[in-house]
Amino acid sequence: MSLTLDEARAVSDRVREHALGLGAAVTIAIVDDGGHLQVLDRMDGASPMSARVAPAKASSVALFRRDSTDLMHLQEAYPAVFAQIIDAARTPIVAGGAARLIWRDGAVVGAIAIAGGSLEQDDTCADVGVGSLPSAA
């Protein structure tokens, strides 16, 4: 089962609220378990590039079934293989911070990525997003 659109919107709303409290202007991207974009929420003042980076990061972690840290380690360990995967995937693959899988009952149901704030703000917002669903684990 994938993340529903209503759930994705609720997660985005919670992250937006948290980012406002931090004084951060971020872009929130939430994808389903197949990496397909469900919500793209670019806050006023968030960098224009963040609206391209966040969805690519979210889709990447969903497709690889690895959080951003694991995906970055994979890219560092096997750069040539990673480059071939990117070419074969025919979709942007971005191994960057603040991207997390969303789990329910032991299965990946989606992913979230944040871009536009500081690294710490983006990471905190991603954690808030993952933790905002009652049944997410």
Rank of each mutant, 00 (worst) to 15 (best):
Asp105Phe: 04
Arg9Ala: 11
Asp70Ala: 13
Ser47Val: 10
Arg65Lys: 14
Asp122Ala: 02
Gly35Ala: 07
Pro48Cys: 08
Ile93Trp: 03
Thr4Tyr: 10
Ala19Cys: 12
Glu76Val: 08
Pro92Leu: 04
Gly97Phe: 13
Leu37Asp: 11
Val109Asp: 00
His18Phe: 07
Ala25Val: 11
Val53Asp: 03
Gln38Thr: 01
Asp105Glu: 13
Leu63Ala: 09
Ala19Glu: 09
Leu71Phe: 11
Ile28Glu: 01
Asp6His: 15
Asp87Gly: 13
Gly131Pro: 15
Arg100Lys: 10
Ile28Gln: 01
Leu20His: 02
Ala62Tyr: 07
Ile28Ser: 01
Gly106Asp: 10
Pro134Trp: 01
Ala24Phe: 10
Ser59Cys: 04
Val11Trp: 01
Leu3Gln: 04
His18Cys: 06
Val108Arg: 04
Ser47Trp: 05
Val109Glu: 00
Met49Asp: 13
Val94Ala: 05
Arg9Gly: 02
Arg90Glu: 12
Asp123Phe: 03
Thr69Arg: 09
Gly129Leu: 00
Ala29Thr: 15
Ala115Tyr: 02
Val130Cys: 09
Gln38Lys: 09
Thr124Phe: 07
Asp67Arg: 06
His18Thr: 09
Val130Met: 02
Gly117His: 15
Thr124Glu: 14
Val39Ala: 06
Ile93Thr: 07
Val94Tyr: 05
Tyr78Lys: 15
Asp67Gln: 07
Pro134Phe: 00
Ala8His: 04
Thr27Ile: 10
